[in-house]
Design a protein around this nucleic acid. Structure first.
Lengths: 190, 190
DNA sequence: CCAACCATGTAAGCTGTTACATGATTGA
DNA sequence: TCAATCATGTAACAGCTTACATGGTTGG
């Protein structure tokens, strides 16, 4: 058998946008325009819907052999579908355990990963993921809280407010993660 | 008087990192290395501390006449200080009212803005800012909540979890904003 | 038929990432 | 003295933003 179609380099790592596209197309083959609308009109709107970001990103995924173009019957629109390699790549990403740095500064990417897990990873991976979220988020909340206590005196008032916002958000996430973990356990052992 | 020193273009708009540097240096003149440590060891760590981002950003601000280099007595380290133009530029940014899009997708930048406001903007600007945050954040929470209700049935379970995380975070922010607004009113009218 | 929208794309420019390079200073 | 850390930088590269361009389709 021939090695790899096209230029599928092994060192190519999709960006967060790339995985958002892979996951979206995995759920349902779609055209670039449909994805743009999705990014405009749903909570996926954290991603830019500008054509200058989406079309080149789709093209890269095609070049790497993770997506393919196909013409949809009856219309002039071309839809993108995920390939076997694309599915493998997506699943590999979905199975990755969380990293502390992501919990601190890239929570959105973790939520994207979680959102696409349904039906793609074994239940124990999902449970490990959410359990890890709960643990790491609480650790981060404790650190933030400690930092605020240690610096309450010498910080400007508005700086303190901003820090307290960060703590409030992190605590809300920790609470959500704990609740979700419980919900998942209940779901596995009904 | 000569027009403008160096190349201070009027169309130059600092990035969020640029404003983070301006605000940091405004509080206390510092060297690039000290700023890197700040970005590594405090909750400002949402900004990368890599030299490849910070040193070029500092150089740009110097080129635009918003910062100046100075040698600190006794050491070989060079510190950056903010210029009159830099202060004006910073204050102009700090006085900007919030935009809905920022509340939805760039909350961190808004918190940076808030953190640097102390002593730089009149109290009524600060109050307007936080009042606007409270209002817009609640509106966003309502939208998210509505979206979740409308789509609860046809969303994958993990997708629902991710959306609920977003709602929990937004509600925590709305609560924080309301509390902060109250605290600010109490501060203005003691 | 003409305006509005559908649908896809390209080009220039900037920023940030990663990796590498360099010399000074400090501590064991 | 030798390693680690201080301190500052540069170069290559990739990705995103903004702005522009283009043709098809639909509705009034």
């Amino acid at each position: 058998m021939t090695p790899n179609t096209k230029s599928g380099r092994n060192d190519f790592e999709p960006t967060t946008l790339g995985y958002a596209l892979l996951g979206t197309v995995r759920q349902q083959p779609q055209s670039g325009y449909e994805i743009r609308r999705l990014f405009e009109e749903t909570p996926m709107s954290s991603f830019s819907s500008s054509p200058g970001s989406i079309y080149p990103a789709l093209r890269r995924l095609v070049q790497e052999g993770l997506l393919v173009r196909a013409d949809r019957a009856g219309t002039s629109r071309q839809v993108f579908d995920i390939t076997t390699d694309g599915i493998a790549r997506l699943k590999c990403w979905l199975n990755r355990p969380i990293e502390s740095a992501d919990v601190r500064h890239r929570y959105e990417a973790l939520m994207l990963q979680l959102a696409f897990m349904e039906g793609e990873v074994p239940p124990r991976v999902l449970e490990r993921f959410v359990a890890g979220l709960a643990r790491e988020t609480e650790a981060w909340a404790a650190e933030l809280s400690q930092y605020i206590e240690d610096n309450r005196r010498n910080l400007p008032f508005t700086g303190l407010l901003a820090l307290e916002q960060g703590l409030a958000v992190t605590r809300a996430r920790a609470q959500w993660a704990a609740d979700s973990h419980r919900a998942l356990r209940g779901r596995s052992n009904p």
